[in-house]
Design a protein around this nucleic acid. Structure first.
Length: 605
DNA sequence: TTAGGTAGGT
């Protein structure tokens, strides 16, 4: 039974109107009419009118009507949880449906803890949950990332025997996924008799959330092989994200083809992920083309485009897109400014970068984060403003992290400044950096300065710390297969033909005027040994392999695990002319596009 | 008689 206090708050009825009980046998027809009216409500005001009618007709005594009233108020977009709860609280004997509705309503307005308390109240009141209760409760746990409570409630599911309900299982996959418990997420999935697109989707998202990109693609392949291949945008967006992170351009392209064939139009999220995938897989033109054709660009589409252009070294173009965004009235945020500042840094646009940094702080009131400072240290460092970069670090309102000191150390390497490099390295090592490459960078600097004793002591310290440098690698995609090479690699079955090819290439390079820059080899070995080591850097092996196995004029795409040495850079420029190939190299930070003897970075990287 | 899971892109 519902009391009357709330009802009289309505503007549409007065206390003197009678709402005496009508016989239950007359409920059905009038109930249906009231429910039909509820469904037509477009606002809380409409709802209050229907509510009055219900009271006037005496139907408020019908638990079906009262339940629907609570449900409509709790779950409609225009609804009000306060109103829904006030009706709910006046129901004498709320049952499972009423509790389920209120729990869902609370989750809808993100009152997640309250939703869990409502579930507890339900249990304490002796109202038995059903298979509709748990998907909602697990959703609350998933959003709160509360694994412990989620697991306890999973126990209730077993106790009540809902463990085989499809919706309960799907919500559990999601719960464990969100709580980073991938083992249990998979276990629930594997124990399911029947799997729907939502089950696959939840499992793909669980892996995507953890950055398990290869597994994500594996699940997607299983999903297809089990005949569950349907246009489900959310799954495809996760798959595109995996392609982006792994550089799996071919799969990304096939997802794009599928979307074009099967969808009447693409929404902004799908378009943005496609654009991101193309840009990060090296297809700048394709990304730009998608961007230009997008009907509705939002802040994130601009952000993806700006950071994509930054990675490709197109600083001016990134700044143009940024201005376009501001002209369209979209406000910049801190993430977009990371893209803008890194665009300036990669393209050597020092003045623009400094101007943007100040504008961000003073015009838009965005407080610089450590990422922004990282970009600025990079920007100044690359441009040779090493003391200014150090000053910026020292004046930061927060403690500098390893990324910043590493940025300064790399800049010192570029500009051969051993003194400042020692300052950067000292700070970096104090942060307990477990990165062997930092020691090697310092050692390379000492080697360039021919300070062999310091080279030896740095390498000894590296050994003492027990750090192993994972060898830098270059991967190349040939006929849909990825081949990975490390320096001086002879592990590939065809290594002899690769080395033969390298030999032939060297002749051509010599003829064209290339001479190896042996200063890039930081070992105290003779000149011949240095040349030999230099000629078998992983990138060169990957290029030789690609030249053997790909058709004439076809582009070569290489993914490096570490930054390119300047000799490999020069070498690749020569190769792009001699063999008339476009070569794209992606390292951790950016792309280099080699064509006709030049590189898109303009030799600034 | 009422309802539910997945929902993504920097």
């Amino acid at each position: 039974m519902v009391g009357t206090s709330v009802l009289y708050q309505s503007h549409f009825m007065t206390p003197q109107e009678d709402h005496s009980r009508i016989p239950e046998s007359d409920f059905t027809l009038k109930e249906q009419e009231c429910i039909a009216f509820m469904k037509r409500c477009k606002s809380l005001r409409d709802m209050k009118q229907v509510h009055c009618q219900i009271v006037k007709l005496g139907l408020i005594w019908s638990s079906f009507c009262a339940s629907n009233l609570v449900a409509t108020c709790a779950l409609s977009d225009w609804g009000s949880m306060d109103y829904a709860c006030s009706i709910f609280r006046q129901i004498d004997d709320p049952g499972t449906f009423e509790y389920n509705t209120v729990i869902r309503g609370l989750i809808k307005e993100m009152s997640l803890v309250e939703a869990l308390f409502m579930y507890l109240e339900m249990l304490e009141s002796g109202v038995e949950p059903d298979n509709f209760t748990y998907p909602a409760v697990f959703k609350a746990c998933a959003l709160l990332r509360t694994l412990e409570e989620g697991m306890q409630i999973h126990g209730h599911v077993f106790k009540l025997g809902f463990q085989e309900d499809l919706f309960v299982q799907n919500s559990l996959i999601n719960l464990y996924g969100k709580c980073r418990d991938i083992r249990n997420s998979r276990m629930v999935f594997e124990q399911m008799d029947q799997k729907t697109i939502a089950s696959w989707s939840a499992l793909v998202s669980a892996h995507a959330n953890l950055g398990m990109w290869s597994e994500c693609l594996g699940i997607f392949a299983d999903m297809n092989s089990e005949g569950c291949w349907r246009a489900e945008e959310s799954v495809l967006v996760s798959v595109l994200s995996a392609c982006t992170h792994l550089g799996a351009l071919d799969l990304g392209r096939s997802v794009h083809c599928y979307l074009i064939r099967n969808m009447s139009g693409l929404n902004v999220i799908v378009e943005t992920s496609l654009m991101d995938m193309y840009m990060k897989c090296g297809c700048l033109e394709k990304g730009l083309c998608l961007f230009e054709r997008m009907a509705n660009k939002n802040q994130m589409s601009y952000s993806v485009m700006i950071s994509g252009l930054a990675m490709h070294g197109c600083g001016q173009e990134a700044l143009r897109v940024f201005s376009q965004m501001l002209e369209e009235g979209l406000p910049p945020d801190d993430v977009i400014y990371v893209g803008v500042l890194s665009a300036c840094s990669h393209a050597g646009l020092v003045e623009e970068g400094l101007r943007c940094f100040n504008k961000m702080k003073y015009e838009y009131g965005i407080k610089p984060t450590i990422q922004h400072y990282g970009c600025m240290v990079d920007l100044m460092g690359r441009a040779g403003m090493l003391n200014e970069a150090l000053e910026l670090i020292n004046g930061m309102p927060m403690e500098p992290n390893g990324v910043l000191w590493r940025g300064l150390l790399t800049a010192c390497k570029i500009h051969s400044n051993v003194e400042l490099a020692e300052v950067a390295a000292k700070n970096l090592f104090q942060l307990n950096s477990q990165n062997a490459s930092d020691y090697l960078t310092l050692s390379n600097l000492y080697s360039k300065a021919q300070r062999w004793e310091d080279v030896a002591s740095t390498r000894t310290r590296l050994a003492e710390e027990g750090l192993n440098q994972e060898p830098g690698s270059s991967s190349v995609e040939v006929k849909r297969e990825v081949f990975k090479f490390v320096s001086q690699d002879k592990s590939h079955p065809q290594w002899e033909s690769v080395y033969e090819m390298l030999h032939q290439m060297e002749w051509q390079l010599k003829f064209e005027g290339y001479s190896p820059d042996t200063s890039q080899v930081s070992l105290d070995v003779d000149e011949e040994e240095k040349r030999q080591r230099l000629s078998t850097h992983s990138q060169k092996l990957a290029i030789a392999f690609a030249l053997i196995h790909t058709s004439q004029h076809s582009p070569i795409r290489i993914v490096r695990s570490v930054r390119m040495c300047s000799d490999c850079h020069t070498y690749t420029k020569f190769i792009s002319t001699i063999y008339e190939r476009e070569i794209t190299v992606r390292d951790r930070n950016r792309f280099h596009h080699f064509k006709n003897g030049t590189c898109s970075c303009g030799d600034y990287w």
